[in-house]
Design a protein around this nucleic acid. Sequence first.
DNA 1: CGTCGGTTATTTGTACACAAATAAGAACTC
DNA 2: GAGTTCTTATTTGTGTACAAATAACCGACG
Lengths: 242, 242
Amino acid sequence: MTDQDVTASSDVAELLSQASSALERFQIMYSVLRDRICMLVYPPGTQLSEEALASEFGVSRSPLRKALQILEADGLLLSQQGVGTLVTEVDLQELSQVYELRLELNELTGRLCPRPLDQKLVALFDSLKRRAERLSAAPDRAVFARLNIDFFHAFQQLTLNEPLRDVSEKLFYRTCRIWLTLIDEKDLPKEVTIFCGEIVEIANAVRLGDYQAAALIRRAHLSMGFNRLKTAIQRSADLKAS
Amino acid sequence: MTDQDVTASSDVAELLSQASSALERFQIMYSVLRDRICMLVYPPGTQLSEEALASEFGVSRSPLRKALQILEADGLLLSQQGVGTLVTEVDLQELSQVYELRLELNELTGRLCPRPLDQKLVALFDSLKRRAERLSAAPDRAVFARLNIDFFHAFQQLTLNEPLRDVSEKLFYRTCRIWLTLIDEKDLPKEVTIFCGEIVEIANAVRLGDYQAAALIRRAHLSMGFNRLKTAIQRSADLKAS
DNA sequence: CGTCGGTTATTTGTACACAAATAAGAACTC
DNA sequence: GAGTTCTTATTTGTGTACAAATAACCGACG
């Protein structure tokens, strides 16, 4: 069972009961909740109930709260006594600062501690390429979002610098929701086409072992993507005002 | 009362009783514990007792555990059921990856979202320069460590990119203990002289508004400092082996 | 004497009951 | 009828008792 399947699993209580240590149980709850937040199962502004979640997961509030507290430190949740635990909104100001940093970190991923190219890595990007082709044929928001997450993780494999991977991952999860919240059905095919192009290009660069080229391509797409985001935000703000 | 005083305060229970919200109480406990870890009040390998700390802080284990859990996520603590809560050791392998990343992030601090130069910033660096001069006259390990921390925070003021500041801070606190653990009394005057020279140079660059120059100087010192660290680690390993 | 096995003490993890804080709604007043 | 204050329901925060896990200790046995 892969990690994606774990986080997407519906019977979390079952998984938790099979976990052998407190650390494992924490990781399951953390992954599941983060995944739900990023896949908009819990859209921004959603109020989570500790009681209800603990009940669903088959644990008491104590261990659940640890997962919630780390997610709060990650900037995905906000808990307040007497109010509740709310999924944070994504704010343009904050988003643009995170994106600016991600652009630079992305370049480092292609430069620091490069992981030697092996068949496994090539195969990973190939499988993403195939998934991208299937997505192109039948655009779907959830499939798009999932591929976006998995592609991010594949890209992170290019570096062996663990602190860089950790930092990049936190920042990624802080921003990736914005796509699902802003891209409407009409824009989806266009975005899918662009994204699949990116995957193909980067997979080719990786196959050649040129990680810096891969990073440059990704940086370009991140930058262009952020610009498209800004116009989408502007558009939705105009829509709201009218 | 400044933040440094807060973290250095001995009567934490008193402070906590005056805090008005759970968030404030958390921040106090977190800052105090992080400070104690970085100032080697709790050297690497120290076992902390939740019971004892909760008792000292005048709270129950529940709110204390939140602070411990975040510190564990920061990589400063490691909790294990049946074993205890241990202050992590600093490992050379990990350290060098973090340093490599810090070198690069440091450059970003001088480049992204520069904070407009104002009198307050100049005054901040001037006051650090004066503290450095006093330290030079009377080298002291604890004063050195404190100045190192405060100088880091001053440098962070050069950028307004908050995610960058957050990330840099976490990485700084993950590495800064190494100096106190490795630099012995004999090396102290030399290290103090080098560090004070860095502060003077950077303060001058800041006064001119040339943050990128400041970042370059700092990068050079970070790099050289890391090299000195590596030889010190090698030396202490040799000492251990003999 | 060394080694293996069980026992026990200690520590974190978990469950649960209650306290504190907030917000929504009801009732009361002007 | 509008505004204000009190009440109450709901939610997270905190305290505490107990469970689970680990490691050190001790004794028996080879």
